[in-house]
Design a protein around this nucleic acid. Structure first.
Lengths: 348, 348
DNA sequence: CTGAAAGCGCTTACAG
DNA sequence: CTGAAAGCGCTTACAG
């Protein structure tokens, strides 16, 4: 690989001049400039981003820490992060925390060692305090994404609480009085906020608290299926709300195993939802977060901080859209109305 | 941030010794070593990966170029790449080609400027020759992933041709004689290979060629829906094979719009398929590629090349699994058999 | 308008 | 067992 020295020699100039031609950082006489350009061409010279970064102590790169790209919501956010970073000429380093605190800490350290200019971080449920400590000690700007905190730190996520309220209001408006919310791990902020919204709605709509069920879990591996199965058979709710794609997948499995029809036996709604939602029957009522925009906004905020923008930490919340679909039916399921039977192999 | 000089001063040694303690590259007297370690602790010293990389001309990082993380198959491959890279202590730089040749070339150049030790590349349909040229000129090891080529270059992908043959054989065994294959853009190697498998199977099973339909497209944006709609209504195939998730999504939309039932009006099978496939009705017969393993294998091969392993370029093909499900029915659809009507809102 | 030189933070022969 | 010094490939005051 050719270096600046090669180019300079060939053009008969100093490396200063080559550098300035390359970066447009000072005027160069047209003739000189042309010779340099020709020499660059001839040697197939390519700038070494490493050496440049080292000298400038700025790498033009951003780190992204996610628990799993496979999760559709995160894939969308990553896409937004990617595009926004690209638009600003930043390269993206991606690390996987695999939803464990230890790997998250290692991931952040690796990114720090690589001197990324900033980090977008979707924290794991039991994130270690050391993560934010090291980040602030290193003085590297951070923006939390999706998994937010009650801390003075920049963060971008979705509005959860009032969306849940709206969803529950809708169900109550349809006549539902017994709802089960599959919430999962409330250490994960969006799940916690959705739970709060659920409780808000129960209170404000005057639903009997004892008729509502909330299913929590305290670890990633904990299986809610058996408990949900018991709730559905014994408690007989008429509506179910899953608070994430993953929880919805598990819940749908249980519903199917019990032979319940949606929405005639049970109304079904979920947050986040599935890719290609329009293709499957029944269409599932979904609170869909603007994942791409969340990722893009996180990078914009991060880049403004990198650029030196001062001011208090800001929390940005983007609004999800609620897609009301057939799975929450027009009518409340009534035992007496069970006229239709499951038709597992039909689709329209 | 503390540097080696700070650590050395505090420990009363030279930076050589600090470096050797850090990297375990030579014996250091225990007492000296302890002083160094203590100084590292006290200064919160962290190695600068940039300076290290520059000196060693090795960055311990890998580049990944994908067209879109949103595509489930690519998300899985990325996960495999990520985990395999992590296991080998490599950091991952991810660039998005957005399925356009120009962005792909820019992505590769950016990764090259950042001196990645190797690149995993899922090429765009109309990839520029310059991409592979620059890569070989730079002497950076590359492994093509998923989108393979008839070139002397390392590559890892899925076996496509014989899987398609097996799928068609299965359909023929069920009595199907009129099949439509939604193939898409044959510049994309897996799609091309699936088409070849389809033609192989038509020949070997003795199907009448004029009764089979192949739908091709030559650009990403081209909409196959109208043509598929015409084929389904005029040509009346009894089975449909979609060659990718994206094509399956489009095809399912058309099928639904025409009010056809699966599998009673039309058997439906797809390559790649949807996430959470077990949750929707009807279950779709799917040729599922081992995305994670493809990604992981690509990185393993890449790392062995980085490590200096010689030998001819190798092509690794992993086998997909064919999941036969309800969507290809047990029986061939017959007009006279249309006893069931669509039940759009039912699920079991 | 241009160049010589310092320095970013490391690794690694070389010498003792 | 340890240190002084060169050098990786750039950028950027400083000087002319």
């Amino acid at each position: 690989m050719a270096t600046m020295v090669d180019v300079a020699r060939l053009a008969g100039v100093s490396i200063s001049t080559v550098s300035h031609v390359l970066n447009g950082t000072r005027n160069v006489e047209p003739g000189t400039r042309d010779r340099v350009l020709a020499a660059i061409e001839q040697t197939s010279y390519r700038q070494d981003a490493l050496a440049r970064a080292m000298r400038r102590s700025q790498t033009d790169s951003l780190g992204l820490v996610l628990s799993d790209v496979g999760e559709p919501a995160f894939a969308e956010m990553m896409h937004g992060v990617q595009e926004s970073a690209y638009a600003d000429g930043m390269t993206l380093l991606v690390a996987n925390s695999d939803e464990t605190a230890e790997r998250e800490l290692r991931a952040v350290r690796t990114l720090l060692e690589r001197r990324v200019d900033g980090i977008v971080l979707a924290r794991v449920a039991d994130s270690s305090d050391e993560v934010l400590d090291e980040l602030s000690r290193a003085g590297v700007p951070v923006v939390l994404m999706d998994r937010l905190a009650g801390l003075p730190i920049d963060q971008v996520g979705t509005e959860n609480r009032s969306s849940m309220r709206e969803l529950v209001d809708h169900l109550v408006g349809l006549g539902h009085r017994r709802i089960v919310a599959v919430v999962g791990d409330t250490r994960v902020s969006p799940l916690r906020e959705r739970l709060e919204g659920f409780r808000d709605a129960v209170r404000s709509t005057g639903l009997a608290e004892e008729d509502q069920t909330v299913l929590l879990s305290s670890s990633k591996s904990e299986n809610l299926s058996d408990r949900l199965s018991a709730v559905l058979t014994e408690h007989r709710p008429t509506a179910l709300i899953a608070c994430s794609t993953h929880l919805a997948a598990g819940a749908l499995g249980v519903v199917r195993r019990l032979g319940l029809s949606i929405p005639s036996d049970l109304a079904f709604a979920t947050f986040d939802g599935f890719p290609y939602p329009e293709l499957f029957e029944p269409h599932i009522t979904t609170v869909r977060q603007p994942g791409f925009d969340v990722g893009a906004a996180a990078v914009r905020l991060l880049i403004s901080r990198i650029g030196g923008s001062a001011g208090d930490p800001s929390t940005v919340r983007l609004s999800p859209t609620i897609e009301y679909r057939a799975s929450t039916g027009p009518r409340v399921p009534q035992p007496s109305e069970k006229t239709s039977t499951a038709q597992p192999m039909q689709t329209s």
